[in-house]
Amino acid sequence: MQVLTTTQDDFYLLTLEGDLDAVSAINLDDAIESALKSQNKHLLIDCINLNYISSPGIGVFTSRLEDCEKLKIKLITFGLSTKVLKVFQILGLDKLLTIVPTLTDAQKLIANAEH
């Protein structure tokens, strides 16, 4: 899996491509660690090209959620495919994480938070 990083004025964007499993979870964890150090108050995770997720990948989201809350960083996930979203829903994580359909929706949340 690849994790691409993009920094914008008002958010830090991580773009995931491929399968997020026991092998690749560390890549996302490292990328989020760097994002938290950037001190940007909005961390967006683009899952449009995330093909698969299993528990080690989900574990990165759940463990980093607390870190984001402590640092007052808003974590927003968008672009989940139906099959990946279903895995989050089974666990009830769709209620704990902020998940929106598109990047535009994520940007609207940021804009609303700033006004």
């Binding site: 299993s54 528990s55 080690p56 989900i58 574990g59 759940t62 463990s63 959620l65 607390e66 895995v87 089974i90 666990l91 704990l96």
Partner: peptide
Amino acid sequence: STIVQHRCNGGIGLIL
């Protein structure tokens, strides 16, 4: 919610 709070990620796979 306990897993998130206590970072005990080991249980996620078995819950799934």
